[in-house]
């Protein structure tokens, strides 16, 4: 008994001492908090801090180099009466809505084509991504050249084909300028849709299609009753990302038109830049940026609710 008792005491003495940290980490709640901490710090630093700083700027009268004082909602009141801001809001909605519809339609069509078997499939899929891979500023400069009122290759081609007899003022006409920037946005965005939807298409079990085909369902019915419902969750996520990006688009319009002519292509982001950087009115620029937030929030919430409903079904 005595020997046994000694051995037990010796073994206990040799066991490593556990510190407070070790003991805390054995608690799942503390462990979870510790594992989440790096992410929380990153989010706080790079998402929350800039956002809070932006909100603060929007309620001050800060200009470049001058911190400013709290002015409440004065900047938003100013925007409410600002005719250029109203034009920018309208343009942003038109730009986002029209571009998203075309990107979705063309992207889906392209994805369905790419989902088929044909020679050079891998090459074509890689090639399709080019507009998405090329830096936007670079490709937009190429488009600017193509839309140039004097040297437009598009005008030249249409002229040679005897389709037009006087040149089209792509970026100089207010209506056409907005259409032109939408065209470039669609061109740049279609690959993202196509590749994302293609990934979604490839998760659909081909047996479903085959069974429907055997039952005599024509292609359109197979698409509408099988492909589309199964692709919808992916589509909604893709549309969500795309809407956010398109709504806050800046560089494309900045390079192509600078928001002109006469603000015909002014968007939220370009106007925020013009006020904040061009004029040094940081607070008003921040207010324009922040004005995007409720619109985007509504769009995102509606889409997320819809995605959840689709997933439940």
């Amino acid at each position: 008994m005595a020997v046994s008792g000694l051995a037990t005491r010796g073994a206990f003495a040799r066991a490593p001492r556990r510190g407070t940290a070790s003991r805390l980490l054995e608690d799942e709640r503390w462990l979870a908090a510790a594992l989440l901490l790096p992410t929380v710090i990153l989010l706080a630093l790079f998402i929350a801090y800039p956002f809070v700083e932006g909100v603060w700027l929007a309620v001050t009268n800060a200009t470049v180099g001058v911190p400013g004082k709290f002015v409440g909602l004065a900047n938003f009141e100013m925007l409410w009466n600002d005719s250029i801001f109203r034009v920018a809001v309208w343009n942003t909605f038109v730009y986002t809505a029209v571009a998203t519809v075309f990107k979705l339609g063309l992207g889906l069509w392209l994805a369905l084509l790419l989902n088929r078997n044909f020679r050079g499939k891998a090459f074509t899929r890689a090639f399709i991504l080019l507009p998405f891979i090329i830096p936007t500023v670079l490709s937009t400069y190429a488009w600017k050249w193509m839309f140039d009122p004097t040297f437009s290759v598009i005008n030249w081609t249409l002229f040679q084909l005897d389709i037009i007899h006087s040149r089209i003022n792509w970026l100089g006409d207010p209506g056409l300028a907005l259409i032109s920037v939408i065209i470039v946005n669609v061109w740049r965005g279609v690959p993202f849709y196509a590749i994302s939807l293609l990934a979604g298409l490839q998760t659909i079990n081909p047996e479903l299609q085959e069974a429907a085909a055997i039952d005599g369902a024509p292609p359109w019915q197979r698409f509408w009753h099988i492909t589309w419902p199964l692709l919808l969750p992916v589509t909604m996520v893709v549309v969500l990302f795309s809407v956010i990006q398109t709504f806050a688009d800046f560089q494309l319009v900045y390079v192509l038109t600078g928001g002109g002519p006469a603000n015909a292509t002014q968007l939220f982001a370009t106007y925020a830049y013009q006020l904040g950087v061009g004029t040094g009115l940081l607070s008003q620029g921040a207010a324009v940026s922040l004005a995007m937030f409720p619109f985007l929030l509504i769009i995102v919430v509606v889409q997320l609710l819809y995605i959840r409903r689709v997933e439940v079904h």
């Binding site: 140039d148 009122p149 004097t150 040297f151 002519p261």
Partner: peptide, 21 residues
């Protein structure tokens, strides 16, 4: 005027002049 000027930036007129348009 050349009505394309509504879309010109600061280098567009240089190009147009040098191209003889």
């Amino acid at each position: 005027c050349d009505e394309g000027g509504l879309a010109w930036d600061d280098s567009s007129n240089n190009r147009a002049f040098l191209a003889g348009t």
